[in-house]
């Protein structure tokens, strides 16, 4: 199984629609904070939509709405029936429905972010749902996590290691994390962030701008 979407030419209906970016990772690693940060950084220049996959009701969607970083109507919440990974990998119907609803209501959009419910290291997005994906870890999970790998860590288009501000407190060695991640990711990018200190997650936002530009270039709107 690979989450690397180098063969996205096969993805259906790529033309005239927004890039779909999946953001996954374990519970508490900062996925929702990253989505909020990206909305802050990219909102002024991009037409955005957000789909959240909550474990309980609409917790993450509510957080984003309260944060006021994006028009509340542009956030849709999907419920996952105890199985967050099922909703982004094995049965993506509800998520596709939400993504297309946003595109119909507010389109054309530049970027639709799909945030997964917090899950384990094996959870990745189906390529039928996400064109690209980011996997978010945090340093407090321990600096061994990148070495352990798993499809999220090894195959995501971008690995984000968040909460670097906590590294000294939890005894996490960022050099070790960086070295191990590079080893298992075969050259794909890794970014270290502290979203608490950098509310716009600027390095990640810059990466996203790059993939959105490339997507537009490749799938120029024909409508």
């Amino acid at each position: 199984m690979s989450a690397n979407h180098d063969d996205h030419h096969q993805a259906p209906d790529g033309h005239g629609r927004a890039l779909r970016l999946g953001i996954g990772g374990p519970v508490g690693s900062g996925k929702t904070a990253l989505v909020a940060a990206l909305c802050r950084s990219l909102g002024p220049s991009m037409r955005l939509g957000v789909v959240t996959n909550d474990i309980y009701t609409t917790e993450d969607a509510d957080f984003l709405r309260r944060a006021g970083v994006i028009d509340a109507d542009r956030i849709l919440a999907v419920q996952t029936g105890c199985c967050p990974h099922t909703a982004i990998r094995d049965d993506i119907a509800a998520n596709l429905d939400a993504v297309e609803t946003l595109e119909e209501r507010f389109g054309p959009l530049d970027l639709v972010i799909v945030e997964s419910g917090g899950d384990n290291l094996t959870a990745t997005f189906s390529r039928g749902l996400a064109d690209r994906q980011i996997f978010v870890l945090d340093v407090s999970g321990g600096d061994k996590v990148p070495r352990k790998g798993g499809p999220g860590v090894t195959a995501a288009d971008l690995l984000v290691v968040n909460k670097t501000d906590l590294a000294p407190m939890v005894g996490a060695d960022l050099t070790v994390m960086s070295r191990d991640a590079a080893k298992v990711r075969d050259g794909k990018p890794v970014l270290f962030t502290s979203i608490r200190e950098d509310k716009g997650a600027h390095s990640v936002a810059e990466w996203v701008v790059g993939i959105v530009d490339a997507w537009h270039h490749q799938h120029a709107h024909t409508v």
Partner: peptide
């Protein structure tokens, strides 16, 4: 139940 049509999220 593996039919990918969203059924997994409903408990009836």
């Amino acid at each position: 139940s593996r039919l990918p049509a969203g059924g997994h999220a409903h408990s009836g």
